[in-house]
């Protein structure tokens, strides 16, 4: 798994894949999708797919892929090496969503929430497999949200494919377990080798589990906070844990859409717009100036 | 710290020590209130200060952040607009001929006397005053007729520049940052004159603006 492309610029998202085995391009395949790193406030979220010919599912099971959450990091690494070695019938692809990308997507003016982001990434990976010539026939997807709606969405997107969306699919379908392992291994490696472009000084390298309810992680967030710039790009700014710390400890920043935020508005009576002003009104500035937002300077 | 765009001449080295560029408050002729102006070195040139001001702006300047996100511009200004303020005041108070250094006196804005040092003041003041010379000394009095003639020239020059720079002057409201492919041929000569009058009115009092409109 060559992660150099992502490691060189971990601000942007990255797609990487194995070569599609010849068998996958000639035989109907089952494809599993899973994610890693949805919950943490630190690091990327990784979506992974793994596929093999339907007829070879038994061979995949023989590699003893299991629910990746029950395995140790070292065990997952070993399993991934076995999957990667089975190049004749197993293929994989990963989409690494950088924490910066997650943060900016979720905080855009036209909000792009995590669910939509997740679904689109999964759809993108299925399409990538199809574009690579893989004869995808069946798709198995793990989900935390409502399975029926997501299944319907995928079926609409890929009407020729048999789609199964189920919670805990990683423990039901070997191809999803395999995808889970690919995603988890990728995330573990990326997080371990994370290069802080911000050149942090005097910051503890131990940030705990990376989960928002971990006191060690919260302490680390507070420690590495810059009052003007906030957190390093390793942090998902859009997570409420991060936002609360920013609100309490960082400098306030106002954007021109802050006015649309109900918490920023103070209710103003309509009548106040018609109230007589106490101060005498002076001639308004010529439109040449106000159209260009130019004002006379009275003080520096 | 402030970020300011200024003509190069502002930063010319002064001929005399301690006479570098000077920011100072003077009476804005349109509002009658204090506004900030800039004299170049040796007070030869006068500049008005404008700020480009959007509400949600700040600066990074070097390794510092600054809340005030205004971008300032210093642009050359004809000092006669400010001299007019005192000529009109003198005319209202007693209507007598006076030397300029007695006209340009203001406790609230003591720097107004520096207008005398501007190169163009002595060269062009005859456009707005009646002059008398007694015993080798010159005396001045505001002339409305001459001033209106001078202001009309300003308006005419402004019209030319507006046309040359394709400034939108017609009645339709549109942000100045919107750039349409269409040439603004809808504007009439009247539109240009009205607009130019309005611009010049930013530099004169309301009475004079009304008189100029009539003229």
């Amino acid at each position: 798994m060559d992660l150099r492309a992502f490691e060189e610029d971990n601000a942007v998202s990255c797609l990487l894949d194995s070569a599609a085995p010849a068998a996958c391009r000639t035989q109907p395949c089952c494809l599993g999708i899973d994610e890693a790193g949805r919950g943490p406030v630190l690091g990327p979220m990784v979506y992974g797919i793994c596929y093999c010919p339907v007829a070879r599912q038994g061979d995949l099971e023989a590699i003893k892929v299991a629910d990746s959450k029950t395995l140790t990091e070292a065990q997952r690494e070993q399993l991934f090496e076995k999957l990667d070695a089975a190049k004749d019938f197993v293929g994989w692809a990963l989409h690494i969503l950088s924490p910066n990308f997650i943060s900016t997507s979720m905080q855009r003016r036209a909000k792009y929430n995590l669910n939509a982001l997740s679904h689109d990434t999964a759809i993108g990976l299925i399409q990538h497999a199809l574009d690579s010539g893989v004869q995808v026939a069946e798709v198995f997807v793990d989900t935390v949200g409502p399975a029926e709606k997501y299944q319907e969405k995928l079926k609409q997107q890929f009407p020729g494919l048999e789609v199964t969306v189920k919670p805990k699919a990683d423990s039901l379908f070997p191809v999803v377990s395999a995808a889970s392992i690919c995603a988890k291994v990728a995330r573990d490696r990326v997080v371990k080798n994370w290069k802080f472009v911000e050149a942090l000084e005097n910051v503890d390298s131990d940030y705990g589990s990376g989960y928002p309810n971990d006191p060690k992680t919260k302490e680390w967030l507070t420690q590495c906070l810059d009052p003007v710039f906030g957190f390093p790009q390793f942090v998902r700014f859009s997570w409420s844990t991060a936002q609360v710390i920013l609100e309490n400890k960082a400098v306030a920043v106002r954007w021109d859409d802050t006015e649309d935020d109900p918490s920023q508005k103070s209710a103003q009576s309509l009548l106040s717009y018609f109230a007589r002003k106490d101060t005498p009104t002076r001639r308004p500035a010529h439109r040449f100036f106000y159209e260009r937002k130019l004002e006379t300077v009275t003080s520096l | 710290q402030w970020v300011m765009v200024v003509p190069e001449s502002v930063t010319d080295l002064p001929k005399k020590p301690n006479s570098g560029p000077l920011f100072t408050r003077l009476c804005n002729p349109s509002t009658g209130q204090a506004a900030l102006y800039l004299f170049s070195s040796d007070s030869r040139q006068l500049f008005e200060l404008k700020a480009f001001h959007e509400e949600y702006r700040s600066w990074f300047i070097g390794q510092a952040v600054q809340q005030d996100g205004r971008l300032f511009f210093a642009t050359p200004m004809d000092p006669l607009f400010l001299v007019l303020v005192y000529l009109i005041k003198s005319e209202k108070e007693h209507g007598k001929f006076q030397p300029l250094d007695q006209i340009l006196v203001d406790e609230e804005f003591p720097s107004c006397s520096m207008l005398l040092q501007c190169t163009s003041t002595s060269r062009t003041i005859h456009h707005i005053v009646e002059e008398k010379e007694i015993g080798g000394k010159k005396f001045y009095k505001f002339s409305e007729e001459k001033t209106l003639k001078w202001l009309k020239k300003k308006v005419d020059q402004t019209v030319k520049v507006l046309k040359c720079h394709d400034v939108r002057v017609d009645a339709r409201v549109q942000t100045a940052t919107f750039i349409s492919g269409k040439q603004f041929t809808d504007a009439t000569e009247d539109d240009y004159i009205r607009y130019a009058h309005g611009l010049i009115s930013e530099y004169i009092n309301e009475d004079l603006s009304t008189a100029l409109a009539k003229y």
């Binding site: 710039f229 | 949600y56 700040s58 990074f60 952040v65 809340q67 996100g69």
Partner: peptide, 22 residues
């Protein structure tokens, strides 16, 4: 020039968090 109002005057680690780009 930033497209937001930072309600603070003071030091900022600009070179740490910003790299010039064309």
């Amino acid at each position: 020039s930033l497209p937001c109002r930072v309600l603070h005057d003071g030091d900022a680690a600009v070179c740490k968090y910003f790299s010039p780009a064309i």
